[in-house]
Design a protein around this nucleic acid. Sequence first.
DNA 1: CTGAAAGCGCTAACAC
DNA 2: GTGTTAGCGCTTTCAG
Lengths: 340, 340
Amino acid sequence: MTTEQVDGRSVPTLEAVAARAGVSRATVSRVVNGSTKVTPEVVAAVTRAISDLNYVPNRAARSLASRRTQVIALVVPESTAKVFADPFFASIVQGVALSLADTEYTLNMVISSETNPDKTRRYLMGGNVDGALVVSHHSGDHSYAQLGSTLPIVFGGRPVSEAQHESYFVDVDNVAGSAGAAEHLIERGRRNIALITGPQDMPAGLDRYTGWRRALEAHGLDHTLVEYGDFSPSSGLEAMRRLLAAGRPIDGLFAANDQMAAGAYSAIHEAGLSIPGDIAVVGFDDDNFGLTATPPLTTVHQPSIGLGQAMARVLVRRLAGEPVDRVTLLPTELVVRQSS
Amino acid sequence: MTTEQVDGRSVPTLEAVAARAGVSRATVSRVVNGSTKVTPEVVAAVTRAISDLNYVPNRAARSLASRRTQVIALVVPESTAKVFADPFFASIVQGVALSLADTEYTLNMVISSETNPDKTRRYLMGGNVDGALVVSHHSGDHSYAQLGSTLPIVFGGRPVSEAQHESYFVDVDNVAGSAGAAEHLIERGRRNIALITGPQDMPAGLDRYTGWRRALEAHGLDHTLVEYGDFSPSSGLEAMRRLLAAGRPIDGLFAANDQMAAGAYSAIHEAGLSIPGDIAVVGFDDDNFGLTATPPLTTVHQPSIGLGQAMARVLVRRLAGEPVDRVTLLPTELVVRQSS
DNA sequence: CTGAAAGCGCTAACAC
DNA sequence: GTGTTAGCGCTTTCAG
């Protein structure tokens, strides 16, 4: 059973609209593209013809003639795609899609295979898109940065290396968020505040460490109670065990993400300590663990949908030739629950 | 700071390749499109020229000339997009994207505003895509079905109404999955098995009810212990309370999704009953609640990534003119944990 | 098996 | 303001 490319009533062309409105194709084009230099009456006539005929401009023809595609690629590394179910990432996509829905741009999702990154690169450079949004899950990998000189690109997450300083990116203000988390613990009267952070080659791990340290320093508190995890629950468990085993007093803990906080919960409980009685805990991310945890976790909420929206907005502005800051930092918000 | 549409070294055209290979544009086109009717030597020469020049065909031009866009739209109703963070949905997107990555098709995500559905409709009908994938979260809403006669469409989830019988769709085998869940409870020796299902105007709610009922009937068991929820945890809580309040003996429960099972857990516990001691519980979906629940939830796993992949595959086959079944049902799998 | 020629539907100078 | 005229880069008959 072959699916014929049945035309039905074939799609009307600009030419048909022109004929019906009694004007030239150029004029129809002007109206469609919102040129101001058209008489109101003509605009009206053309508009009528358009809706009568149910005309929809053909994107391919338009692109070919205008040398603009009106397509924005959202590039997702395959490894990230594997954890697509990660709500943080899904929210970014959502934000991008929502934000682009109000524009003339079309969203093209590209999964870049890590085994064959050139395919994506070629696609992007082949003049098939007007710009690209690149997200590399929590990692700051700007390996597409080189393309930035030819194709407008906006990254999600700040680059790891300052060398890639040229890139445009949108990120959550991890430093401020972490500092706020630490401040909160301090306000709660905690003085021996430990940190479980992530790998220091990942911006999120590094920046959350920095924010925490700055806050403690500002209050003249000791900031050497540090352990490292890899953002997984089990690494949080291990890290907390090490912290506890060290024998130094601890009455507060900031975990660089909620998953590690979850692990820390277990370690704290297995040590017979209470939350927040003995140790007040604050996490980061505000993922779904926090709410269902016992006690519910105080955590730093990051605007993941907002991140996607901001990325799209920055790119669209760049494409419009409007001035945009290379760096866009989104504020976080401390969600206070019962763990602190 | 305006972003110039700098050309850099402008993208090579087919013409350039033709010149370099010493053949006509038509021949290059044939090679690019894998026509068999070209001499091996010529193919080699053209291939060389292509890679030398780093040629990438221009999609717009190709579309315009061939009247094919090589674009597949993935339509997501805005309300669904709001719950984009729903891992089930995110997985479908992932499946679609992965599956399409191996084809010549490009994935175009479209968020269809419910307030202005015509915009999407026009876009789809405007010859801008070769086909569409429509997902309406758990709902079977095939309001785009009418377009199916003009544009090849594949739906995720079976249609609510049999009238829309024409549509192609891919769905999880809810009936079989639920029957399996009920069978499992029966095998565990449960005889008074209750059901909390979803709205009966949603295929998932209806089909999961059907599967459960058939299994009980097959074993001559009572199948009147039924309450309805709306797939939310709180509705599950309420439903379970009603079930318990009725005073009839219950030793097993099948909840039509894990969220409602979560609510049921609370109701069971607040009634001072144990899981699975007093009541064995089985859910459906295998979302992230199941693993972290106490006790971990036995549930029916549905292949959400597979669903997306299947949708893409079915559409691509249709577009290739290959025969495809209108209905594709994906098998579920019972994941036995400690709640049963 | 390969080349020539004619567009695909639209935009963008350039005239009027 | 509006029409005329060229193409944008590619596919596709149709000859040869």
